[in-house]
Amino acid sequence: MQAYLKLDHIDKTFARGNATTEVLKDINLTIEKGEYVSIIGHSGCGKSTLLNIVAGLTGATNGGVLLENREVNSPGPDRAVVFQNHSLLPWLTVYENVKLGVDKVFAKTKSRAERDAWVMHNLSLVQMAHARDKRPSEISGGMKQRVGIARALAMEPKVLLLDEPFGALDALTRAHLQDSVMALHQKLGNTILMITHDVDEAVLLSDRIVMMTNGPSARIGEVLEVPLARPRKRLELATNPSYLKCRQRVLEFLYERHSFVEAA
């Protein structure tokens, strides 16, 4: 198996003064091209730190990240991030927010007209073309997250990193957006690494679920293959035995073997 994205023996230690906290210990993970992998764990287990390390926003203490066999240790558009709180720039319109990344990534390879068409194409992918001249304050939370996804997709990343992308949304909007992401993954075949704390979301969307033990010194506890054919439909899956089995496995891991202990 040729690894597309490889997390190689990653340790992460935070030092504050004399006190050091080991957050992540010996994380090894390989992800194939086109694969959808979720990382699930209790809050505080360092899963967001892990995503930041892959994104290059935080450095690993030991080990490193390999993308197509090349080490990456600084942020870049080849690993575009969809942030949990959308992080759209409020003084730019929807169009300009997406254009910011497009102008940088395709500065030399695309003409002005091509870049404009590419921005609009990506906004249409997430059904936000109609709001191109609106500012983030004028659209709903779900719409903001759609634009955030369009901004990341428009950079044509090798790996799309989703940091709890649906965490701040209400249940109905969340389901709607999950379906959109599934359809986009089906259509574009992106490699996706997603952080989540929602068991149903992880099973519904992922090819593999990486379950993390509790911190400090969180490790990968278990990796579960989700043997469900795509395209998946949430209503049909509700009674699908292998869906239920996967769900059961993740729940057992999270609530029996590694139940969350509130830090004293």
């Binding site: 994104a55 290059g56 926003l57 600084s74 942020p75 870049g76 558009p77 690993r79 575009a80 991030v81 942030f83 709180n85 992080s87 720039l89 910011l100 990344g101 940088k104 990534v105 950079m155």
Partner: peptide
């Protein structure tokens, strides 16, 4: 967040 966006977009 804004700094992160700027970093990813380079």
């Amino acid at each position: 967040d804004y700094r992160n966006v700027a970093a990813v977009v380079q």
